[in-house]
Design a binder for these strands. Structure first.
Length: 373
DNA sequence: TCCTCTAACACTTTTGAATCGC
DNA sequence: AGCGATTCAAAAGTGTTAGAGG
């Protein structure tokens, strides 16, 4: 079925340009940009700090997209999905299961600040979710993604044709995820190897690596603040020369534009949408045949109950062609990570068949907060 | 006692307003 | 006057650590 048919099914769905027919959702491809960095962390066991006031991810999510219609508007968003229904603890230099998972916090979806934007914009350059923040504060008012500490998650990216975040609900989704982006949410780093890796790669952590205060900042305070300032200025002058290397220009600029637009038009760009996990609006959809959803979420299989929910909205698109950009595709959700030896965990467990024993928990992760619509 | 979480810390990077020069 | 480049200060962001709390 074609997107235009969707519009007929859902009167509120914005009409796409006629030419969009030639760019079916099934052709959409997504690539994780900083794969090597993610894999470096993944080999050790990625940990993401979450704080009460929100913490950015590192490595951050950066993707590139292709196969979109250049003129059609799309909304791109990301949410976090629990890998399993257990919580972990760090013991004897490794992660161990510490019991059943906490009840899931309100599910939030972070919409890329540029949304909505035409396909040409999304395909022009890689998309950064740098400003997305993670928190463990279930009462958070900033719209950050709420996670539980000591639980494992992975980011899941969604693309849908929509002229406004408000109309996303009615559109067909294409969902992507990447096996190397699985991480454990923590309030303090547990694995010292992760700490070292972050300090090596994260520029903000240089304050602890350089200046001689690393690990002893409180006891060995350096008195040379002015020299540090000079160094900063020199670096800035240098970095100004190639602006494209400082940050993603269009991202930051359009981000600001998006913010001002959000004030004017109530745009939800850059904000997370919240869903009370106790809501079960799509519960009736969870009984769909499993083979109806396999092609929709690519790369990493997601929760069984989640996929049928979306597959109902767009069961007509063909599987995207095999692409080296993506991880091995499987129609099965991942098995329990701990059912696999630790050394295999990060390399192959997504290819393992899965027993669908976590369906109820995963079904708590719909895409949106219905209270927002 | 152990585990988890929080806040303060020192430092770097980012951001945006102000200033300067053409 | 307008524009782009540069400067500067404030804000934001980082990992570490001690201490609080369960």
């Amino acid at each position: 079925m074609h997107p235009t048919s969707d519009s007929r099914l859902n009167p509120n769905m914005p009409l796409s340009p006629p030419a969009a027919d030639s760019h079916q959702q099934g052709c959409v491809r997504m690539k994780l940009e900083n794969t090597d960095l993610w894999k470096s962390f993944d080999r050790i066991g990625t940990e993401m700090i979450i704080t009460k006031h929100g913490r950015r991810m590192f490595p951050h999510c950066s993707i590139s997209v292709s196969g979109l219609h250049p003129l059609a508007n799309y909304v791109i968003m990301v949410d976090m999905v629990p890998v399993d229904n257990v919580k972990y603890k760090w013991k004897k230099e490794q992660w161990e299961v510490a019991g059943k998972a906490e009840p899931q916090p309100p599910c939030r979806t972070y919409i890329h600040p540029d949304s909505p934007a035409p396909g040409s914009h999304w395909m022009k350059q890689s998309l950064s979710f740098l400003k997305m923040k993670l928190t463990n504060n279930t009462l958070d008012q900033h719209g950050y993604i709420i996670l539980h500490s000591m639980h494992r998650y992975y980011p899941r990216f969604h693309i849908t044709q929509a002229d406004s975040p408000y109309t996303v609900r009615w559109g067909p989704f294409q969902t992507f995820s990447f096996p190397e982006t699985v991480f454990t949410a923590v309030t303090a780093y547990q694995n010292s190897r992760i700490t070292k890796l972050k300090i090596d790669h994260n520029p903000f952590a240089k304050g602890f690596r350089e200046g001689g205060t690393h690990s002893h900042s409180k006891r060995c305070r350096s008195s040379g603040s002015p020299p540090a300032k000079r160094a900063t200025l020199q670096k800035r002058v240098i970095s100004r020369s190639p602006p494209c290397l400082q940050r993603m220009p269009s991202t930051s600029q359009s981000e600001e534009a998006g913010k001002s637009q959000s004030v004017k038009e109530g745009d939800l760009s850059g904000w997370a949408l919240e869903q009370d996990p106790t809501e079960s609006l799509h519960a009736e959809l969870l009984e769909l045949p499993e083979n109806d959803y396999g092609c929709e979420e690519q790369m990493v299989p997601a929760s069984v109950p989640y996929q049928p929910y979306r597959s109902l909205e767009y069961p007509r698109y063909a599987l995207p062609p095999n692409d080296t950009d993506v991880a091995p595709t499987s129609v099965h959700p991942p098995p329990h990570p701990l059912a696999i030896p630790e050394q295999q965990l990060h390399t192959s467990y997504y290819n393992h068949p899965h027993q669908h024993n976590h369906a109820a928990d995963w079904s708590q992760y719909p895409l949106f907060s219905y209270s927002c619509w």
